[in-house]
Design a protein around this nucleic acid. Structure first.
Lengths: 156, 156
DNA sequence: ACTAACTCGCTGCGCAGGCAACTATATTCC
DNA sequence: GGAATATAGTTGCCTGCGCAGCGAGTTAGT
């Protein structure tokens, strides 16, 4: 297949490794959380709410932090609320909005999920990497995140 | 929130950076491909088929390489076939199976997608990293992939 | 104060993908 | 060779999410 842009072997393995590793880690960690019936997305929301404390967080802020559409987030919140893990309250000072707050059941479940997540992460990620690796990674993330990753495509 | 397992700042930024970077890159690249009406998954299949050549590949092999369920893959293949990008042929030597083969339209579209993907990747990833970075990354991927990432969770 | 423009969250719709059940063929075991 | 079992691919059903459109509420402009 001539005329096609080529990658070096090193480039290819850096990129493919990135994709594969992410995929595998994600799956493994999601599977760990699944035993508590918690998805990655749900875990993320519960964590954010735990950090937010008793005043909770606005729905739209949560959606944004989770990088989800607000529509999708509404339903995620529905599921969590139906399970009694969060509560919706009218937002103070804004009649349109709501804030979501963690219930005590939510907090209890989160604690278990936290432990699970943490243990899996340690076993699958941190135990396998040294401090140098971690520093190398953060250096790379910093370079990649430089300001304009979200600028969409160019090629004419 | 006491009693919860803690990560160091370095650990946290290595992990969060991993997730965020992946998310951003994935989205940007997917958006690039979208202008050709090609999803990441479709792109992956077309690429595999291009590499496979005129004998194509078995459906189940493709599903496996794409890390998808066979059910899901059937429909992905349906979509590609409906668009005339691939063809299904009965598998030689096995009356149950089929092989998928790239059509010439498929090859044509893939070439465009390839270029788009390549350009985006270069701009978003390779242009921002040096050879050292790439080597650091592959070293990390190797450590993380060490044999048992797929062993599901432990923590009792 | 009244309207226009915007914002917040929800809903209907559509799509991609997983899982489990099924069909058709292959393989194995007697 | 025939029955039991395994495998390839398809299908039905379900879930989770994005998108576009909405109703209620807020803010800005005059």
């Amino acid at each position: 297949m001539p005329g096609t842009p080529r990658l070096t072997d090193l480039e290819d393995s850096a990129w493919q490794g990135f994709l594969n590793t992410h995929h595998n880690l994600w799956r493994a960690i999601e599977t760990g959380l699944a035993r508590l019936q918690v998805s990655m997305a749900e875990y993320g929301v519960l964590s954010l709410l735990a950090r937010a404390g008793k005043d909770g967080m606005r729905m739209s802020d949560l959606a944004q932090r989770q990088v989800m559409s607000t529509g999708g987030f509404t339903r995620l919140a529905d599921r969590l609320e139906r399970r009694g893990l969060i509560e919706r309250r009218p937002a103070p000072e804004d009649g349109r909005g709501s804030v979501a707050v963690l219930t005590s059941e939510g907090r209890t479940l989160l604690r278990k999920a936290w432990r699970q997540h943490h243990d899996d992460l340690r076993r699958l990620f941190f135990d396998r990497l040294g401090e140098t690796d971690l520093r190398d990674l953060t250096r790379v993330w910093a370079r990649l995140q430089q300001s304009d990753v979200e600028r969409e495509s160019s090629a004419e």
